[in-house]
Design a protein around this nucleic acid. Structure first.
Lengths: 110, 110
DNA sequence: AACCCTCCTATTGACACTCTATACGTGGAT
DNA sequence: ATCCACGTATAGAGTGTCAATAGGAGGGTT
């Protein structure tokens, strides 16, 4: 992840990947582009962050993959959300809610 | 940092420490308690996270320290915000704003 | 054919941060 | 005496992200 967000969001990358895949199955770079899109360009996920995360999440069973052809006729590995992945997205979304609430409280404090 | 927030907020600890010290100088454990307070109990910073962060931030020049006596008559190292620290808090606050906005966008996306 | 560019996946090595666990000294209470 | 709370401190491990790099494969150009 980059673009001046650097380093801030441990664990949040997973949430963004899961959220991206809600829109439907897509390959790695597709996920990367979608994240950039839905965050208004704020987050740019580079390959060195993306693929390790994807592999890890597949091991955890949150996503599944299969080889296919991209829209440009290239070999591409597609990912899709599993049931466990949807559950996980929900968990992480709630967690994010708690955390951003807490930080908002802190920043408002006098 | 702990209490089910675990691992999520790389870099945010600094912001919370800086924000805590806006209320006035205090010693290490005091900072820890204040963070817990202003985040509504969501964040609990343990010594193993707190002190390394404090040392690092002092090296960066964001806070300065001096030895004194605590309210319980014990030796305690007090920390206070420097001018650079106030500046840094501002920088990190703005960054947080951008990031939480971007993630909110992402989570609202369809 | 040779070439280059883009797409797409992938790995490596370094780095930064946080956590758990542990340690130690001291003041106050029982 | 003993025990607990206070307060600071460090070591070691684990995790996640990054920059840099690699390489195959398709499409276009010359």
């Amino acid at each position: 992840m980059n673009s001046e967000s650097t380093t801030l969001l441990q664990g949040t990358l997973d949430m963004l990947i899961l959220k991206s895949l809600v829109a439907g199955e897509m390959h790695g770079l597709g996920v990367s582009r979608r994240i950039q899109q839905i965050t208004g360009g704020t987050f740019v996920v580079k390959p060195g962050s993306l693929f390790p995360a994807l592999h890890r999440m597949e091991e955890e069973g949150w996503i599944s993959s299969f080889w296919g052809d991209s829209e440009n006729n290239r070999r591409a590995k597609y990912y899709r959300l599993t049931k466990a992945g949807r559950k996980q997205l929900e968990v992480e979304t709630k967690r994010w809610g708690r955390i951003s609430w807490a930080i908002a409280q802190a920043l408002e404090a006098s």
